[in-house]
Amino acid sequence: MPDVAAAKARLEVQLAELEARQARIAEDLAEPLNADSGEQAVEMEDDASLEGQGALVAKEIASVKRALGRIVDGTYGECVRCGEDIAPARLEARPEAALCIDCARAAE
């Protein structure tokens, strides 16, 4: 059985960090483009990269929120696919893990 209180604390810290990162990305994307056309091209490339990072961060936020939801409903530590327990070492490494290692490998 995983240490749910410790996992919840780690997930809450992770969520706060991800949300702060998402806010910084949004701020960077909101900055107006430089008037110089050469600089604009570079900034547009940077914006495309930031948008990609923003999408990844949003995905991570959703994963952490789902894990926190599993804590609330009492299913944290159970594989959402097969129902077996997720190994404590996996939860230690990835507290937001929703799949046991076998189901995660099958999903890849």
Results as ranks from 00 to 15, higher is better:
66 R>C: 11
22 Q>G: 12
16 A>C: 04
7 A>V: 08
76 Y>W: 05
52 G>E: 11
29 L>D: 14
8 K>H: 06
19 E>Y: 01
62 A>R: 11
53 Q>S: 12
12 E>G: 10
89 A>E: 15
15 L>P: 08
101 I>L: 11
3 D>N: 14
39 E>A: 12
12 E>W: 12
47 D>R: 15
11 L>V: 09
31 E>I: 08
4 V>N: 09
44 M>A: 09
17 E>A: 09
57 V>R: 09
18 L>P: 03
69 G>W: 13
9 A>I: 09
107 A>S: 15
74 G>Y: 03
24 R>M: 10
87 A>L: 12
71 I>Y: 10
8 K>M: 01
36 D>W: 01
21 R>C: 02
34 N>Q: 12
43 E>A: 10
53 Q>W: 02
33 L>V: 11
24 R>P: 02
95 P>W: 03
16 A>R: 15
41 A>Y: 04
11 L>R: 05
3 D>V: 11
74 G>H: 04
108 E>I: 05
32 P>G: 07
8 K>P: 01
16 A>Q: 15
38 G>P: 00
95 P>L: 01
28 D>F: 01
16 A>V: 09
81 R>C: 03
54 G>Q: 13
47 D>P: 01
50 L>Y: 12
29 L>K: 10
21 R>A: 07
9 A>C: 02
15 L>T: 06
17 E>I: 00
37 S>I: 10
50 L>R: 15
63 S>N: 12
90 R>W: 01
97 A>I: 06
37 S>C: 01
45 E>C: 00
42 V>Y: 06
81 R>P: 00
2 P>K: 11
94 R>S: 08
68 L>A: 08
68 L>N: 04
108 E>L: 15
53 Q>E: 12
33 L>Q: 06
55 A>M: 10
103 C>Q: 02
49 S>A: 14
14 Q>Y: 09
79 C>T: 01
77 G>I: 03
24 R>V: 02
15 L>F: 08
10 R>A: 06
3 D>R: 12
80 V>I: 13
40 Q>K: 13
37 S>G: 02
37 S>E: 12
4 V>S: 11
81 R>S: 13
47 D>A: 15
106 A>R: 15
96 E>M: 06
59 K>P: 05
22 Q>V: 07
84 E>G: 11
2 P>Q: 10
23 A>S: 09
98 A>C: 05
78 E>R: 15
52 G>M: 11
40 Q>V: 04
78 E>K: 15
107 A>D: 14
17 E>S: 07
103 C>R: 15
24 R>E: 13
100 C>Q: 03
108 E>Y: 08
77 G>V: 05
56 L>D: 15
24 R>C: 03
98 A>I: 02
56 L>V: 13
88 P>T: 14
23 A>G: 10
66 R>K: 15
74 G>T: 00
104 A>L: 00
86 I>K: 07
60 E>R: 14
48 A>M: 06
32 P>Y: 03
104 A>V: 01
84 E>C: 04
40 Q>C: 05
2 P>H: 11
34 N>I: 08
32 P>E: 08
85 D>N: 09
91 L>D: 04
101 I>F: 02
73 D>W: 09
50 L>V: 04
8 K>T: 07
